[in-house]
Design a protein around this nucleic acid. Sequence first.
RNA 1: GUGCCCAUAGCUCAAUGGUUAGAGCUCUAGUUUGUGGAACUAGCGACGAGGGUUCGACUCCCUCUGGGCACCCCA
Length: 423
Amino acid sequence: MPKFQAPKGMRDILPEDQVYWEKIKQVVKNLAKDYGFGFLETPILEEVDLFIKGTGQYTDIVEKEMYSLRTKGGDQLTLRPEFTPAVIRAYLENGLSRLPHPVKLFSLGPIFRYERKQKGRYRQSYQANFEVIGEKDPILDAQLIQLFFSISKDLGLKNLITQINSIGCSRCRPNYRRMLVSFYRSKKKHLCSDCQKRAQRNLLRLLDCKELKCIKIAENVPQIIDHLCDDCHSHFRSVLEYLDEMEIPYILNPHLVRGLDYYTKTVFEIWPDDEEGRQIALAGGGRYDGLIKLLGGKDMSGVGFAIGLDRMINLIQERSIKINTRTKPIIFLIQLGELGKKKSLKLFEELRRSGLGVASSFSRNTMQAQLKRADKMGARFALILGQKEALDETIIIRDMNSSSQETVPLSKVIAKIKKRLKK
RNA sequence: GUGCCCAUAGCUCAAUGGUUAGAGCUCUAGUUUGUGGAACUAGCGACGAGGGUUCGACUCCCUCUGGGCACCCCA
């Protein structure tokens, strides 16, 4: 029995699953480059205050989900629960404002949230994060969504849908809030107990309740998109026009609010479009026109989103989407006898340097066991270096498919193999 | 943080409160002393941890740890 277990909500990613991780990282990196993003790596630890201020003091993430710690020197640090504030911090700290704008940055790595685990939710999970700093043009909101769909396409993921909304800005949102307050004033006693609490703190989430009576009430609630200021309204309309133009599937979701304080205008999530209609976001993001100033920079716009890599991989596996399989070795080197064993290490190096994929199982000494391994690994040829061959400076090439064998001079084995591969 | 369900070998599953906890797959080896895929044979390997009830606990009770689902929220 295992004496030690991985911490709750955290897991090992095993060699057999790495094909998925390698594939998704490769696709993300390629497309990020195509879309003009520079790769930025930030520390896993940041000052706690960065997220309190950036993500927002009253968000769930900051209130109850951070892994915070105190260093020996007394610094208050936290394992990053999301990327955006850290990316903005890096942008400001390294003077990236000297670059032509917008500055496009992408990052890849683990994030940490202290939450109760459930399907597609881990305490350590992996995100690919994209930020576009210093541009308020709505075309970028749309292009980020386009980027997500390009990534999905390269991974073979279809049937996804964008959930999109606009939550206004610091000018129009207070008005809407006031409308909600007056709308709910007379109805408060008819809400469920959760919503009575939400009415105090998190007013927008009243729109999202699953209780039947609350849904009924919310049916007649004024919708925020009908009460945006002119600027937010035209911005949102433009985003949708661009999405139409690119034929990206979306639905307006007036209940989509999102839990981070810094969002303004466009917010979106991307969900699998299954029959069950599970509301597990594969990616989410939005515009944050006040964040950069809040963290000490100029008053400039930003927009970004993050992809949950664990969830993407889960979906790929659930939908049985084929990812190019593990690369098989071309050659399996078999050694027999004292002299063969002695010479095998050096030969292995030569074969390896030739660029042919080579594998071995030197600790096994019988022909049978080694051929079995070669077969399991799917090697194309077995090279047999026995006592006799070692003395003669020759080696046997065995074709694993046809079982035919040929003895060749040791010095010519690489050329012989390469020639056979060309056929 | 709340609610419900679960925990036997690396994996999938068995075992009325009563001998030494079984099987399939995987893995290791043998049948085959220098020839793989099949078959057969053998071997490795487990009651998540700690308490309690009992003559006796894998089985019943409690706590902890971990897993699953939903809520909350999100990737």
